[in-house]
Design a protein around this nucleic acid. Structure first.
Length: 504
RNA sequence: GGGCCCAUAGCUCAGUCGGUAGAGCAGCGGCCUUUUAAGCCGUUGGUCGCGCGUUCGAGUCGCGCUGGGCCCA
């Protein structure tokens, strides 16, 4: 810790507090009420004028972090904050019991205190505690960021999220909402009869998605292990085992780049329901998301940048080819012709247009022409089989599969299948993936023989889906970057942090 | 991987044409017993991200590096 004038001044005050006999670091706060509770109960100025508050004869104790101090000779005003709420404390020299007044002079912004006294309303109408006693709870040795502008520097906000949370109230609010969204999802899924389960985060064969994994090593077994890229193959094993409906909310890890929509570890909910298909997944997704919008954000139409998104069910349905045609301004019949597809791919500089299959190119064309423009919730269906090795084919067309991806705000938010349950078909799909891998695609899926073996013991028709929780929170809270909804996003360590690590 | 932009006091930010490093908040010392970014008087605080270069002289110009942001692939 580098000494500076702020830290030195506060250390000196800490010494003076101890000289005064103040217990600066007590074990427990004196507290009769939560700060937010007081504001909620007595905050209404019309219902609780000063006379009525005084008539209560109440003496409350409330704790909080000191956010502002306004000193006026023999009286002092301070705002305390707790849990995103703030409450004013009013100190008068004549009111405060000894050694409260001396203690007050040693108070800094950022300190934690508890104040005791009656509730009152000042002449400007603000709910306040008329302080009779002050209890010191914690001395802050370092100053908080600027009180008016907060902490603006993005790097410092992500690296020192605690300062971001203290000084930017809307950031705390976003993460409180995130928490309510996640618990809302759990309540909804449980209401639908789903059981929450936990499957391996460390897997010997990383499966269930196409992505590069993180690798680690288990010493005792002397074997490589992979952080999971998806829980899919394990959750399906549970359906084989007899669970009817399961869900899991947890982290996936993908060893890929960072962007406003990508963090190497991110939170996904996956769920599977025996006996169901893609249509059931759509209905559940609409009910879940529109319910969260209404229940937690209070409206079905929510702002997204300078636009608005309506989460009212039903969401739009669009086939992959229709989406390319509509948003790319491309004649629909061209998408039925393999040569035309290749030409269209070349026209927009898609990589390797000669070697890729038409289905893969359709996927690329969709990404290029349509994805970013799908702002309103849209289920895109009928994906090429090459892109979907774990999905049942469409009835009557085995080049395409019964899958949807849900796009909102130009982002992929969810991905769902009528799950492939034919073990022979599944095995040949894996073989196609292995051929892809041989050809140099290191994101192609790895063969998981035990998974195929599980299917061979009987896997019922099943609907399955994954929903990206971070992106859902971004959408509902109108956050432009995934880093604004992940408390501690991945950052490259600073030079000094690295060298300290080595010294330790 | 490519392109563009940013880095100045604890924080938020200025800094003109290359010529002594600035403001507000915060801090410190005063005044003030109902303030609201309180006010008033005084005042401390700088490795201008790091390095090299150009120049009589670099926060400012050039090159490289580090960290971050945005866009594209």
């Amino acid at each position: 810790m580098q000494p500076n004038q702020y830290r030195d001044a506060r250390l000196e005050k800490l010494g003076k507090l101890k000289t005064l006999g103040v217990a600066v670091w007590p074990r427990k706060a004196r507290r009769t009420h939560g700060l937010a509770e007081l504001v909620a109960t007595y905050g209404d100025a019309a219902a609780w004028p000063n006379e009525k508050l005084e008539a209560l004869g109440l003496s409350i104790s409330v704790m909080g972090r000191v956010l502002t101090i306004r000193e006026m000779g023999k009286s002092v005003f301070a705002h305390l904050t707790e849990n995103g709420e703030r409450l004013q404390a009013f100190f008068r020299k004549d009111d405060v019991a000894e050694p409260g007044w001396e203690v007050l002079k040693l108070l800094d912004m950022g300190d934690f205190i508890s104040v005791t006294g009656p509730l009152m309303r000042t002449k400007t109408g603000e709910l306040s505690v008329r302080v009779k006693e002050v209890q010191f709870l914690s001395k802050a040795l370092l100053p908080l960021p600027e009180k008016w502008h907060g902490l603006q520097d993005k790097e410092q906000r992500y690296r020192q999220r605690y300062l971001d949370l203290v000084s930017n109230p809307e950031v705390l609010k976003t993460f409180q909402i995130r928490s309510r969204i996640v618990s809302g999802i759990r309540r909804f899924m449980e209401g639908e009869g789903y059981l929450e389960v936990e499957t391996p985060m460390m897997q010997p064969i990383p499966g269930g998605a196409t992505a590069r994994p993180f690798v680690t090593h288990h010493n005792a077994l002397d074997m490589p292990l992979y952080l999971r890229i998806a829980p899919e193959l394990y959750l399906k094993r549970l359906i084989v085992g007899g669970f009817e409906k399961v869900f899991e909310i947890n982290r996936n890890f993908r060893n890929e780049g960072l962007s406003v929509r990508h963090n190497p570890e991110f939170t996904m909910m996956e769920f599977y329901a025996a006996g169901q298909d893609l249509r059931d997944m759509m209905a559940l997704t609409e009910a879940l998301i529109s319910g969260l919008a209404k229940g937690i954000m209070g409206a079905e139409v929510l702002p997204w940048g300078d636009q608005a998104i309506s989460y009212a069910a039903p969401f739009r349905r669009l086939t992959l080819k229709d989406a390319i045609a509509e948003y790319g301004g491309i004649e629909r019949r061209l998408l039925e012709d393999d040569t035309a597809i290749r030409t269209l791919a070349k026209a927009v500089h898609i990589e390797d247009p000669e070697t890729k299959t038409p289905g893969t190119l359709l996927g690329d064309l969709f990404e290029h022409h349509a994805e970013k423009q799908l702002i309103q919730p849209t289920f895109v269906t009928d994906y090429p089989i090459e892109l979907s090795p774990l999905t049942k084919t469409l009835e009557g067309d085995d080049r395409f599969v019964d899958r949807f991806e849900l796009f909102v705000g130009g982002m992929e938010l969810a991905n769902a299948y009528s799950e492939l349950n034919d073990p022979v078909d599944q095995m040949s799909r894996f073989q196609a993936q292995m051929a892809e891998r041989e050809a140099g695609n290191d994101e192609a899926m790895l063969l998981d023989l035990d998974f195929v073996n599980a299917l061979e013991h009987g896997f019922p028709p099943t609907g399955g889906e994954g929903i990206g929780i971070d992106r859902l929170v971004m959408l509902l809270t109108n956050s432009a970057s995934i880093r604004d909804v992940i408390l501690f996003p991945l950052m490259r360590p600073t030079k000094s942090a690295e060298s300290e690590e080595k010294e330790a």
